[in-house]
Every structure is written in structure tokens, then in C-alpha cells.
């Protein structure tokens, strides 16, 4: 692999890859890769991330389009939920047949 490419301004954009492993399950983030456009990103994802039968469906999104929360905000974002157990729907009896809840 060419080391020059990594420092090159013409480096291919980065894409995040999501794979659905079986029908009925969610797409899960599996990693990232480089590609010039969405079509190539899907093909690359097929070659890089599904070669051991991992998937039945692929999503890709250019990494720059993903906006993340700031770790510094963790306190105000998440801590207030700690003492509000009543928000959990734990008071219902679920039928045994219901999976993935």
C-alpha cells in the first residue's frame, strides 16, 4: 500500500460502514474505509466487511456527515437520567415469544 497516499491531499474520503447481518436485525456499525464515491464505498464494504458471510445488507455514509455528541457534555447529557427509573418500561409483563426487547 502506498504510504504517500495517506499524506496526499487527494486522499479518498472516509466512509462509515453499517452491515445488517440477518434479515430482521438492525444495521450495525462495523468500521470504516476509503472510497471515491458511494457506489465504490458499497463495493469496498462488500469486499472488506462481508467476505466471511457477515451480511445481507450494507449501508455506507460519508464520515463527514456524521455528527457526534461531545464527550465533555457527558455530565449534562446523561447523568440526569440516572435517578429516573420510572422511564424504564419495566412494569409490564412481556410474553416469552417476544425477543430483542
Amino acid at each position: 500500500m502506498s504510504g504517500d497516499l495517506l499524506s496526499n491531499k487527494q486522499e479518498w474520503p472516509l466512509w462509515e460502514v453499517f452491515i445488517r447481518s440477518r434479515q430482521g436485525l438492525d444495521h450495525k456499525h462495523v468500521g470504516s474505509l476509503h472510497a471515491t464515491d458511494a457506489a465504490m464505498a458499497i463495493e469496498n464494504a462488500r469486499d472488506v466487511y462481508t467476505r466471511r458471510m457477515e451480511g445481507v445488507s450494507i449501508w455506507v455514509i460519508e464520515s463527514k456527515n456524521i455528527h457526534a455528541s461531545n464527550p465533555d457534555d457527558a455530565g449534562s447529557f446523561y447523568d440526569p437520567a440516572h435517578d429516573k427509573v420510572y422511564r424504564h418500561p419495566t412494569f409490564y409483563d412481556l410474553p416469552d415469544e417476544l425477543k430483542h426487547m
Partner: peptide, 14 residues
């Protein structure tokens, strides 16, 4: 091990 980029290296190896 010599592909132009990692992703295509894997593709041609596949």
C-alpha cells in the same frame, strides 16, 4: 500486499 489502496488490495485478492 501491493494494491493501490487497502480496499482494492482486498478486492483483487478476493
Amino acid at each position: 500486499g501491493h494494491g493501490p489502496v487497502l480496499e482494492q488490495d482486498i478486492a483483487i485478492s478476493n
